[in-house]
Nucleic acid binder design. Structure first.
Lengths: 220, 220
DNA sequence: TGGTGGATTTCGATC
DNA sequence: GATCGAAGTCCACCA
């Protein structure tokens, strides 16, 4: 990894055109061909960047980065303040503990929190336009469940599309829908009501807790 | 801006839990409180990060970053290979030339590419659920246009929602819809057809060119 | 401050 | 390779 601190001007053309007037910035050239340009503020996203694969041409005044899709990042160097290279060794991947995925797993394990008597029939129930997250039953009807971390109107419409398809099957014509999410936006709630879809807000921490009662019972 | 190259292990808890096993990485501590952890590969996105506002506690073995929403980034330092600070001065903002925005501007300037006789009435035509990108007319009817860079089924449904609202006005009851995009996904095209919405794929470079014909006529 | 929609979204799974 | 949905999405705009 090469780290350059330099006064520079930057021009990007590709999916859009963008220019950065001359200022001091950090340039990161990664081993895989990634090039990032960071200012000393502005959060986690670079001002400009180019993702691999790239070809990098460099001389004293300019670093030109190109990729295979006609995108072009030109860094015009006015003054180099620092230019160091570090060997970093191999990359170890990030391990994450789900989000929507985990929510879906918890709800699959305890569907009754979505409604009395609800039991799981299948996760990822296939329809011809894609899988519904959970297919369940209660004592009377089939229930299709769409799981989101944050549910917007899009989630409602996604579920409604699935329901349209599911109900084409005579045996599933009475299938109802539940939108389950950690958070349901007001517009989504309104649309869901209009479309006859039920909304359930669920608390992931709580779900985790109810599955391992011994952990919460003896917690201080 | 402070740049630290160190062997370290990282733990994030907040919206999810994530761990990074010990390896050599670049730590960036920005003046505004942003903290980024980058590997020597993997494109423009940090492995872990924290966006401002943050509180940073540091000692020899550990950097602990917290924000106001119970998120927590703990960097356990095994060995510091480099630790430098650079003054970067104030940030000059990135100037960009649209994307969807520019596409919308080009189509507003030459709506006839969307259909014969089409003329612009208003950009950002207000409805009670948000603005339609372009409202036009041809010789017979009103035409609502939704502009996207890439159009998915969501774009079709967004336009259909607008049309529902627009047609409530008796003078606009006959309004038709056009989905205009650089690229229209097959599913979007299918749904658009089912919903009676027209699709037009447009080429931004071509639009730019047709507006400045002298540039293309005399190009080598 | 919260909601909504765009992004050079990126990223991954799946077909 | 194309497509579709999720993301610690982030981010800006607007009420």
């Amino acid at each position: 990894m090469r780290l350059i601190v330099a006064r520079c001007e930057v021009l990007y053309t590709g999916r859009l055109r963008a220019t950065l007037p001359e200022a001091t910035r950090l340039l990161i050239l990664k081993a895989d061909g990634s090039v990032l340009i960071h200012a000393d503020a502005g959060g986690y996203r670079p001002l400009n960047w180019m993702t691999p694969p790239t070809v990098i041409d460099e001389d004293r005044e300019r670093i030109l980065v190109r990729n295979t899709r006609d995108e072009r990042l030109e860094i015009r160097i006015a003054e180099v303040l620092s230019d160091v290279t570090h060997e970093m060794g191999e990359a170890t991947p990030l391990e994450k503990d789900g989000v929507e995925r985990e929510l879906q797993a918890e709800l699959a394990a305890q569907p009754e929190v979505l409604g009395p008597g609800l039991r799981l029939v299948r996760r990822e129930w296939a329809t011809d336009i894609g899988p519904v997250d959970l297919m369940c039953r209660d004592d009377h009807r089939w229930v299709a469940v769409e799981v989101k971390r944050i549910a917007t109107v899009d989630a409602v419409e996604q579920l409604v599309r699935y329901l349209e398809r599911i109900r084409l099957d005579p045996g599933l014509a009475e299938c109802r829908g539940i939108l389950a999410a950690q958070r349901i936006r007001p517009q989504a709630r309104t649309l869901a009501e209009a479309r006859g879809v039920a909304c359930v807000e669920v608390d992931l921490e709580l779900l985790r807790g109810t599955r391992e009662p011994e952990l919460t019972l003896f917690a201080v």
